[in-house]
């Protein structure tokens, strides 16, 4: 099957008074229909910028340096804006970071979903659209009569669910969920993630989850991409990446989170801070924080290379973990 979404060597920089911020640099990945991709990385590593690039919602000071994003074979940035407006929500929708503010406070939640439906489906009457809203509310677990209420009458979790219902409204083939559950407590977060996953599998939809929380990504993704400082460091099937991480950054990130079930151990931290994206370090962008860095890492920028059938890494000096739970080979931290 063809890729639904493909991002090829996409590079996007922000122009600021102080200089160019290299927010997204040479990112490539492809997503098949029905697959869920998880993008993980520290705050400010360019995850949301990737999402906004795919949605073509970049601010005015963003400039695409090179690369291409295609959705269902069509180049997103070659489409006329009116043509792409029709693609939005119909084919690709989004669950926003801070869903709390993604609803217009002066209209009822239901009418905001109806609005999206009737905009994209001229043949659907408002009556039918309202019925669909009731179904969607059922699906995400909100009482249908709450559609008449205003956003401020919703709890945080309900707003999140409503935003999910809104994203599902036009049956898109791809949903980008940008930190969909970050604002919620862990129990609600887990519940909503499971429900989203269930819906996604049921209707064979593709999804991009974006989170800084590796446990969220681990729970729901088929493919995992690890971003660092605007670059994709490692991407592969979730099993490969989580059980046999090859990139030192992925390895560090995984050990920076506690495991409830695993043995008690001190959390390993990655020393240092993410680089300033206006002047990223030469060579590998992770090299100043990497304990495996060599002269090569400091001089030559690593390309994404194949490390397995569906596994690619950008590292000169990868970690090798032979199997799940295996000992890490290499310098001790």
């Amino acid at each position: 099957m063809d890729a639904l979404l493909s991002v090829e060597d996409f590079t996007m920089h922000y122009r600021t008074k102080a200089g160019w911020v290299q927010a997204v640099d040479g990112v490539s990945f492809a997503l098949k229909r029905g697959q869920a991709l998880g993008l993980v990385g520290e705050s400010g590593c360019g995850k949301t910028s990737v999402a906004m690039s795919i949605m073509r919602l970049l601010p005015y000071n963003a400039e695409i340096k090179h690369g291409r994003i295609t959705l269902g074979g069509r180049d997103v940035y070659a489409m006329a804006s009116e043509e792409f407006r029709q693609v939005r929500w119909k084919e690709i929708s989004m669950i926003f970071q801070a869903a709390m503010n993604a609803l217009n406070p002066v209209y009822t939640v239901g009418s905001q979903i109806v609005e999206a439906i009737v905009e994209h489906e001229p043949e659907t009457t408002e009556e039918q659209a309202r019925r669909r809203v009731a179904e969607l509310f059922d699906l995400v677990g909100i009482p249908a009569d709450r559609a008449d209420h205003y956003p401020h009458e919703y709890s945080g979790g309900m707003k999140q669910r409503a935003v999910i219902a809104m994203a599902l409204a036009c049956n898109p083939s791809l949903i980008i969920a940008d930190e969909p559950t970050t604002a919620l407590d862990v129990i609600v977060q887990d519940k909503i993630l499971r429900e989203m996953e269930e819906i996604r599998r049921r209707i064979n939809m593709s999804m991009i989850y974006i989170s800084h929380d590796i446990s969220v990504i681990a729970e729901v993704s088929d493919i995992v991409g690890v971003m660092y400082a605007g670059k994709l460091m490692e991407i592969g099937e979730a099993d490969d990446v989580f059980k046999r991480p090859r990139h030192p950054y992925t390895y560090g990130l995984m050990h920076a989170y506690p495991s409830i079930l695993g043995a008690k151990r001190d959390l390993a931290t990655i020393p240092g801070e993410p680089p300033n994206l206006m002047a990223p370090p030469a060579g590998c962008r992770f090299n100043p924080r990497c304990d495996r860095a060599t002269d090569e890492c400091r001089a030559v920028e690593p390309k994404l290379i194949k490390a397995g059938p569906e596994h690619r890494i950008a590292c000169h000096n990868p970690v090798w973990t032979p199997s799940s739970g295996g000992e890490r080979v290499g310098a001790a931290r």
């Binding site: 919602l57 926003f96 503010n101 609803l103 217009n104 999206a116």
Partner: peptide
């Protein structure tokens, strides 16, 4: 600057709406 304006754009609503 509000998120709901961004969301409205993402919903593919016409610019004047």
């Amino acid at each position: 600057q509000e998120d709901y304006v961004m969301a409205a754009r993402a919903k593919g609503l016409p610019d004047n709406v």
